[in-house]
Amino acid sequence: MVDSNDGRDFRRMDIDCEVVVRRITEDVIIHARATNLSATGLMFSCATALNLDEELEIRINPGQEGLTPPLHAMARVVRVEGDEASSGFAIGCVITEMVD
């Protein structure tokens, strides 16, 4: 745990990679761009607005196979910023469960 000035328990790591998001209630796949990751959360950008408290399945395959393992997790939307008129939406999620 980290004692930071912004009150977060864990540091964020900036990333830039594709994330595949599945909306659980609609069984819809969204291709998005991950922007940062911490031990308990993820932020990504996409063209689709998501709902607060919406449950998602997240998959990140971070590049060269074997070098970094993929991330497969369940998450819940806790923040939605932006609009369709701008460059899309920034979605903040809390990771609720890691999936094998």
Rank of each mutant, 00 (worst) to 15 (best):
I15L: 06
L67C: 06
T48E: 14
R76Y: 06
S4I: 03
I30Q: 07
V21E: 01
D9C: 01
A39W: 06
G92A: 05
Q64H: 15
M13W: 07
G63T: 09
A47I: 06
R23V: 02
D6A: 12
G41R: 04
A39C: 13
G92R: 01
D9K: 15
T96L: 07
I24S: 11
G66H: 05
R22D: 04
S38C: 14
S86I: 14
V28I: 13
H31G: 08
L56C: 01
L71K: 01
N61C: 14
F44T: 04
P62S: 06
E57S: 15
L67S: 02
E26G: 04
E65F: 15
R8E: 05
N36S: 13
C46Y: 04
A32N: 07
E81A: 15
H72I: 14
A49F: 09
G63R: 03
L71D: 00
S38N: 10
R59W: 02
P69F: 13
R59N: 05
D14P: 05
R76W: 03
Q64A: 09
F89G: 00
A90H: 15
V80A: 03
Q64E: 15
D100E: 15
E81W: 07
D6Y: 10
T40V: 03
N5C: 09
A49E: 15
H72S: 10
G66K: 09
I24R: 09
S86N: 11
N36Q: 08
V80R: 00
I95Y: 08
M98V: 11
G66D: 06
A73Q: 02
R12H: 07
I95P: 03
I58V: 10
L37E: 01
R79E: 06
A75I: 04
R23G: 01
E54W: 08
I29S: 02
I60H: 03
D53C: 06
I58Y: 00
I95F: 13
S4H: 14
I29L: 11
D16I: 03
S86L: 14
